Simulated scan of single mutants.
Amino acid sequence: MRSIQRLATLGAAAAAVVVLGACSAPSQEPSTATDVPPVPTVAAAGPRTPEVPGSTTEAAVFGPGCGGLPTGDDPGSLASMSQAPVAAAAGTNPQLRTFAALVGRANLTEALNAAPGLTVFAPTDNAFATLPAEQRAALEADPARLATVLQYHVSGTRASAEELRTAGTSTELAGGQVRIGGTGATMTVADAAGTTATVVCGNIPTGNATLFLIDTVLTPQA
């Protein structure tokens, strides 16, 4: 229950920001015939830069698993996921079907989608398939424990791969940290027990999170 409340708090904070912004919007005076029209500005040519701290662009995506993503505007493509909040984006990604289903089982979907900014290390279907059958069954039968494990893969601060490598660690919503390693197109994420996951596709932009697909399920400290 504590782990679910952490994400619920983040979602409430996002809603408060929207309400405050709406209340503080200045009124606009009607224009008159003597108004001088503004001089249009032309943006400099070049790559689009992130508008939110810690966010990324599609051009920054890296990793051997990125080639397996759908293309164009198809569900699960980079273009599609960039427009959706992270749990909704994961639900369309063909490599994250198990992750999305377990997020729903743990009642975390709405909280993840409503959070203002996250970094998510999402184990792929292949990662979950390597778990012993009894371990996965035990997780699915215990939503509270499942929520803790899933939130050990989520940070409440949005960050790019470069920022994560510079920091060296990431603090997770479940408590505790993961260690970040690797350079260039290689990035690793290690849990407290020393289990190391490799990012198969990283820096994926979603509506409210930077998403990293990893090849191993991480385990928080007991």
Rank of each mutant, 00 (worst) to 15 (best):
Thr56Pro: 05
Glu58Pro: 03
Glu58Ile: 12
Ala59Lys: 15
Ala59Tyr: 02
Ala59Val: 04
Ala59Asp: 15
Ala59Arg: 15
Ala60Phe: 02
Ala60Lys: 12
Ala60Glu: 12
Val61Thr: 07
Val61Leu: 01
Phe62Gly: 13
Phe62His: 13
Gly63Ile: 08
Pro64Leu: 10
Gly65Phe: 07
Gly65Lys: 10
Cys66Ala: 14
Gly67Lys: 12
Gly68Cys: 03
Gly68His: 06
Pro70Lys: 14
Gly72Leu: 07
Gly72His: 06
Asp73Leu: 11
Asp73Glu: 14
Asp73His: 07
Asp74Pro: 04
Asp74Met: 14
Pro75Gln: 06
Gly76Asp: 09
Ser77Asp: 10
Ser77Leu: 07
Ser77Val: 12
Ser77Tyr: 08
Ser77Pro: 07
Leu78Tyr: 05
Leu78Met: 07
Ala79Leu: 13
Ser80Phe: 09
Met81Leu: 10
Ser82Glu: 12
Ser82His: 05
Gln83Thr: 14
Gln83Glu: 15
Ala84Arg: 15
Ala84Tyr: 13
Ala84Gln: 15
Ala84Ser: 13
Ala84Thr: 14
Pro85Gln: 00
Pro85Gly: 03
Val86Gly: 01
Val86Met: 01
Ala87His: 00
Ala88Pro: 03
Ala88Arg: 11
Ala89Val: 12
Ala89Tyr: 08
Ala89Phe: 11
Ala89Trp: 06
Ala90Asp: 07
Ala90Met: 12
Gly91Pro: 05
Gly91Asp: 10
Gly91Asn: 05
Thr92Phe: 10
Thr92Asn: 11
Thr92Cys: 11
Pro94Tyr: 15
Gln95Thr: 13
Gln95His: 11
Gln95Pro: 05
Gln95Met: 15
Gln95Arg: 09
Leu96Lys: 08
Leu96Gly: 08
Leu96His: 08
Arg97His: 11
Thr98Ala: 14
Phe99Asp: 02
Phe99Thr: 14
Ala100Arg: 06
Ala100Glu: 11
Ala101Met: 02
Leu102Gln: 13
Leu102His: 12
Val103Arg: 03
Val103Ser: 03
Val103Met: 04
Val103Gln: 04
Gly104Phe: 00
Leu108Asp: 00
Leu108Asn: 01
Glu110Trp: 00
Glu110Phe: 01
Glu110Thr: 11
Ala111Phe: 00
Ala111Pro: 00
Ala111His: 02
Ala111Gln: 04
Leu112Met: 15
Asn113Ala: 11
Asn113Val: 10
Asn113Glu: 09
Asn113Gln: 09
Ala114Gln: 13
Ala114Val: 00
Ala115Val: 01
Ala115Trp: 01
Ala115Asn: 00
Pro116Thr: 11
Gly117Ile: 09
Gly117Tyr: 08
Leu118Ile: 12
Leu118Gln: 10
Val120Lys: 01
Val120Phe: 11
Ala122Met: 10
Pro123Val: 07
Pro123Asp: 10
Thr124Ala: 08
Thr124Pro: 09
Thr124Leu: 09
Thr124Gly: 13
Thr124Gln: 12
Asp125Ile: 04
Asp125Glu: 04
Asp125Asn: 14
